[in-house]
């Protein structure tokens, strides 16, 4: 105990420096957690959130008795996983590629252009996509579809294309920002490794596969574990705005978030919406623990905790 206190005292200023970050974390992430009890209440305006009656698990019923639960859970999880893998591969590939560009100026320019889509609102993105896919005046129907001699495609009522469209949009929007972390990680690799490799006659490919990728592996693993927590959440804008909320597409675009929004927007029941969010969070938390445990099994040093 004595020794620990000494250690603490020695690093007191360093410890002090985490206080602002901790405060933000508590205020933004922990304080709102006390709202979870709202999921178990039937809120009315007179009694407010404190005195409204408890209703047990009634608020959860609508999620699990609905025939759609299987579909929305499948969509949410499989899109999350696909996006995670595709975006990871592309981000790392871009990071490596940008790292190989000699001209700093060009590297910075490419990087900026790749990040740009991340800052566009999904509503704007949805209209960009609409420009491509509008059945009458859309770009695709007037170019590619015409050249192939096909009949015009009614994109917003054909489910077959949407898993690809959504994956492309997600990658286009997210890959640039995802690459930033890996670029930073690669920049931190000691250049001596590469110099040694060059002397040994290693090709560029060998350098990438034997130095770059193994060195940034811990970063990849950490990011993946953290992303696992969001597997039961979906980007609402992507799944609601981009398909223009088109009903015939729901079999492939309906996720937990869009379902809850659609089902509850008229009822305005905060108890039921909280219940849905709680389910997502609990499942996400369980997944993080699970992923971490499996990483730990394989390689203890790489696990997050």
């Amino acid at each position: 105990m004595q020794a620990r206190w000494k250690l603490f005292w020695k690093y007191r200023y360093l410890t002090l420096m985490i206080v602002p970050a901790l405060a933000v974390l508590v205020l933004n992430n922990y304080l709102p957690m006390f709202g979870v009890f709202i999921a178990f209440k039937n809120i009315n305006y007179i009694d407010g959130i404190w005195r409204s009656p408890w209703v047990g698990f009634d608020n959860f019923e609508f999620l699990f008795t609905s025939g759609s639960i299987w579909r929305i859970a499948r969509n949410t999880v499989s899109y999350s996983l696909v996006f995670m893998i595709v975006n990871l591969l592309l981000s790392v590939a871009i990071a490596v590629a940008i790292n190989e560009i000699r001209s700093r100026w060009l590297a910075k320019t490419y990087q900026t252009f790749l990040i740009m889509p991340y800052f566009l609102s999904m509503v704007v993105v949805s209209y960009l996509v609409y420009g491509f896919l509008n059945p009458e005046k859309g770009f695709l129907n007037h170019t590619v579809v015409e050249w192939l001699g096909m009949e015009r495609v009614f994109w917003y009522s054909e489910t077959a294309y949407w898993p690809y469209i959504l994956t492309i949009v997600s990658a286009w929007k997210g890959v640039g920002i995802g690459a930033v972390i890996y670029i930073a990680a690669i920049a931190g690799i000691d250049p001596e490794y590469y110099e040694a490799a060059v002397i040994d006659g290693a090709s560029k490919w060998r350098q990438i596969f034997h130095i770059t990728l193994p060195t940034i592996r811990p970063v990849i693993i950490i990011i993946t574990i953290l992303n696992m927590g969001h597997v039961f959440n979906s980007d609402f804008g992507l799944f609601y705005q981009v398909p223009m909320n088109s009903g015939p597409l729901y079999p492939v675009t309906d996720t937990v978030d869009t379902y809850v929004y659609r089902a509850l927007k008229e009822l305005n029941d905060i108890g039921m919406s909280s219940a849905a969010a709680l389910v997502q969070s609990v499942l996400g938390f369980a997944l993080v623990l699970l992923t971490n445990a499996s990483v730990r099994k394989i390689d203890k040093d790489q696990a997050l905790f």
Binding site: S68, R262, L264
Partner: peptide, 16 residues
Amino acid sequence: KNEITQMTAVVTEYQS
């Protein structure tokens, strides 16, 4: 309430 919530979700899906 539960039934109406689910009906709302179904109706919006088939509105078009």
